[in-house]
């Protein structure tokens, strides 16, 4: 039995015929839509490498069935830069060396973007550390990650102020 679902992926509508309801959002992205920026580190919601935004919220795509997300709006690491212009979080990760091997990085960046939208951590390093704890980094780039988020958050705060001024 096949199921048709329709998703918006990085702004583009994707109609997908699923021959198998077992396909997770992560495996759909990686193995069927060939969007391999999103990584599989554990496949059990224990590492955060597969973090994407679904309807604006960061989730572990390994623990989400694609079929259940019919109609969802999905944003992945491939969808946040505008051409050569990096998203501020991406740029800040490079500037602060927020990664080494880079495997957890797409998940870290999507998580950071999701976290900034949640607006719970602000520019408090301790809250950022807590709110980014769902993304493991075995290389140990945590200090750079926090610094990158702080810089991106400062930039976002500044542009918000400018907008409201």
């Amino acid at each position: 039995m096949t199921h048709s679902i329709s998703l918006t992926v990085n702004g583009a509508r994707r109609d997908v015929v699923l021959d198998d309801p077992r396909v997770t959002l992560l495996d759909l992205l990686r193995e069927r839509l060939h969007l391999t920026g999103t990584k599989k580190g554990c496949d059990r919601g224990q590492c955060g490498a597969c973090t994407i935004l679904v309807d604006g919220k960061r989730i572990n795509s390994c623990l989400a069935l694609a079929i259940s997300h019919d109609g969802a709006d999905i944003l992945t690491i491939e969808g946040i830069a505008r051409g050569d212009q990096l998203h501020p979080v991406q740029a800040a990760f490079i500037a602060h060396d927020g990664f080494q091997c880079g495997f957890c990085t797409p998940g870290q960046i999507m998580s950071a973007i999701g976290m900034m939208q949640e607006a719970q951590a602000g520019n408090d390093p301790e809250r950022i550390r807590e709110c980014m704890s769902g993304n493991l980094c075995r290389c140990g780039a945590y200090a750079g990650i926090v610094d990158a988020v702080l810089e991106a958050q400062a930039g976002a705060d500044e542009s918000n102020q400018r907008r409201s001024a």
Binding site: G48, R58, N60, S111, C131
Partner: peptide
Amino acid sequence: GASAQLRNA
């Protein structure tokens, strides 16, 4: 509990 990602879902 869990992580921000898991709490969102």
